[in-house]
Amino acid sequence: MSQVGKFNNLEVVNEVPFGFYLDAGDKGQILLPTKNAPLGCKLGDMVNAFIYHDSDDRLIATIRRPKVFVDHCAYLKVVSITKVGVFLDWGLEKDLLVPFSEQDYPMSEGVSYVVYVFCDEETGRLAASTKLKDFLYEESCDEGGTFEEKQEVELLICGQTDMGYKAIIDGSHLGLIFRDEVFQPIKIGHSMKGFIKRIREDGKIDLCFQFHDPTARNTLEEQIIEDLIAHDGLSTLTDKSSADEISRRFKVSKNVYKKAIGSLFRQKRILLDKTKITLVKK
């Protein structure tokens, strides 16, 4: 059975002056225009083609690869706004519609958004939505799968809140990265690797970009001591410094840095005040 919004391996069953017709089973024969067909295409060939609806709402095929498939998320730019919704550039001739009813907030031309692509049950056409909560799971124990703490995952940054950044986890779940876990510049639309930090009692998922075991923390402590020695025993990089400053110097989150200097203070290797760290001379 062929599927709209995905690549399908289909047989060429008819050739016409403007292209080829592919046997799409229950969906009948679908046109593959000459400009979207592989070179040397002929009757009897099997073609791996993507199926979607053209501007006249007819099913059409192409070997061009879109920026996103059905049931997946992507960061796409708005190219036009019409009376039925906004249209996104997804790499094909016909732009992808986000109906007004699927917009979580007003969308602007020229701006990119993270959207989920779905197949409308009534029309069979592809569309996109910014209402990610309607399509993605928010709890680890949902039927979409279960995660474990410290598990490495793929993240797509999809939003920002007062607490931090929202991210799509492995294309199926939503999670939160708290601000004190951010130690590198990130923006909405960025794809990156991360980790499951914890599963809360309500099933919600907290994320982070790195884990630090005791060995790693000890290494960071020695880096801090070496940095102090290199700067005559003084540093203005305290636990009050910004996460960006800490990240630039030591490539760790502010939370991890605070734990390391706290450990050094308890070991009486440094002195702390609001404006500086001082190395204790032996």
Score class of each variant (00 low, 15 high):
153 V>N: 04
166 K>L: 15
207 L>M: 09
180 D>Y: 05
77 K>V: 05
103 Q>H: 05
198 R>T: 12
111 V>T: 09
238 T>R: 03
108 S>V: 04
137 Y>L: 09
257 Y>T: 06
75 Y>E: 03
87 F>T: 03
34 T>L: 15
63 I>S: 07
221 E>T: 02
119 C>D: 04
138 E>V: 10
84 V>I: 12
177 I>M: 11
29 Q>W: 13
174 L>N: 01
263 S>F: 07
117 V>C: 01
115 V>H: 02
258 K>M: 08
70 V>W: 05
282 K>W: 08
41 C>N: 14
215 T>M: 12
129 S>E: 06
131 K>N: 09
45 D>T: 10
89 D>R: 02
207 L>D: 04
245 E>A: 15
237 L>N: 04
104 D>V: 02
101 S>N: 06
237 L>K: 07
174 L>M: 15
30 I>P: 01
42 K>C: 13
138 E>Q: 15
87 F>S: 00
171 G>W: 00
2 S>C: 10
27 K>M: 15
69 F>L: 15
89 D>M: 00
151 Q>M: 13
235 S>M: 08
29 Q>E: 15
117 V>R: 00
187 K>E: 14
168 I>M: 06
69 F>H: 11
117 V>K: 00
37 A>S: 15
196 I>K: 04
209 F>Q: 10
237 L>Y: 04
194 G>I: 08
220 L>N: 03
282 K>M: 01
140 S>N: 13
177 I>R: 00
57 D>K: 15
231 H>T: 12
101 S>I: 07
152 E>S: 14
110 G>C: 06
39 L>A: 14
165 Y>Q: 11
36 N>W: 09
112 S>I: 02
221 E>I: 03
272 L>K: 13
72 H>S: 13
85 G>F: 05
100 F>E: 01
105 Y>M: 05
111 V>I: 12
23 D>L: 06
23 D>E: 12
32 L>F: 11
36 N>C: 06
